[in-house]
């Protein structure tokens, strides 16, 4: 590994970290997807058993986990749109850095909206 990594165009810069973030969030979402299909499959076995599993998703601790999952989904979604622009838009590679800032700003705004609504339901006295 080169010791002068700060001299490269890619390593250690926005492009590399968005790639790392895209991979990590992608794996997290995929693992949750496997579990989520299995828990939903309980509707075909027993209605009460499904309600029991869903009630664990409705606890405050799980709501924090769901909020983290949605944070991962939102980053993967917005950064995925950035990847498409980098691949298909003529100016995409030139503005990939600015596009990443756009992704992060959009991510903070949408995530804040989701988190306020979801956590106030999950922590509220319903």
């Amino acid at each position: 590994m080169s010791k002068t990594s700060s001299g490269t165009l890619y390593r250690g810069h926005e492009g590399m970290w968005s790639w790392v973030g895209h991979r990590v969030t992608g794996v997290v979402i995929f693992l949750y997807l496997l579990v989520h299909v299995l828990d939903t499959a309980m509707v075909r076995v027993d209605a009460g058993a499904y309600d029991a599993i869903i009630s664990t998703y409705q606890t405050p601790w799980m709501a924090l986990g769901e909020t983290g999952l949605v944070a991962a989904i939102l980053f993967h979604a917005f950064n995925g749109l950035r990847l498409i622009l980098v691949d298909f838009w003529k100016q995409g590679t030139k503005y990939q850095r600015q596009l990443l800032w756009g992704v992060l700003i959009l991510w903070v705004i949408v995530f804040a909206g989701f988190a306020i609504r979801h956590l106030s339901i999950a922590f509220g006295s319903h």
Binding site: V43, A47, G48, Y50, D51, I54, Y57, Q58, A63, E66, R117, H118, I121, A122, H126
Partner: peptide, 9 residues
């Protein structure tokens, strides 16, 4: 609606 609190069979 009720969000996650409204999810059931």
């Amino acid at each position: 609606g009720e969000g996650i609190s409204g999810i059931s069979f």
